[in-house]
């Protein structure tokens, strides 16, 4: 089920174009302001080529998922917040539903007990 650990555990898998688009988009959302292609490449991390990042940025821009501003000869890219308010409201509503509904919601990380939080904090300090 899902965990096909076929690849060596040290070499990360090669990523498909769609996966890279999600990564670049996530990086733009996480950033405080518009990013140049070079800064976006840093934010994505890993070993991506500059040209790859540039291509993905243009593709995302053409799809209308990100916007860009000209800064001299370069472009700076930013996440387009389309129906930002609506989506946030819908999500808030979803997260505040009753117990039946929360029970079927599959979360990435559930909340922690005070003791667990302390343990995890200690762990993060050890491995910065």
């Amino acid at each position: 089920m899902g965990t096909r650990v076929s690849r060596s555990s040290r070499t990360p898998a090669r990523r498909a174009a769609g996966e890279l688009e999600a990564e670049v988009l996530a990086a733009l959302w996480a950033a405080d302001g518009p990013l140049t292609a070079a800064r976006a490449r840093e934010a994505v991390g890993g070993e991506l080529a500059y040209n790859t990042v540039q291509t993905i940025l243009v593709r995302l821009y053409e799809k209308g998922l990100i916007g860009r501003v000209a800064d001299g000869r370069r472009h700076e890219y930013f996440a387009v917040k389309g129906a930002e308010e609506l989506a946030a409201e819908q999500m808030q509503a979803l997260l505040s539903r009753g117990r039946d509904r929360q029970a079927v919601l599959q979360r990435f990380a559930t909340s922690l007990s005070v003791e667990d939080a302390r343990l995890l904090q200690a762990m993060l300090r050890r491995r910065p």
Binding site: E21, L65, G82, A87, Q90, M91, R101, V104, Q106, R107
Partner: peptide, 30 residues
Amino acid sequence: ATTQELRAVCSSCGTGELAVVALAAPHAFA
């Protein structure tokens, strides 16, 4: 109801695999 609402949030966030909501609380859902 939960799946329908999650899909509604996704479609408010545009197209593509990844949908991002401008909320401060850290959440991720498939």
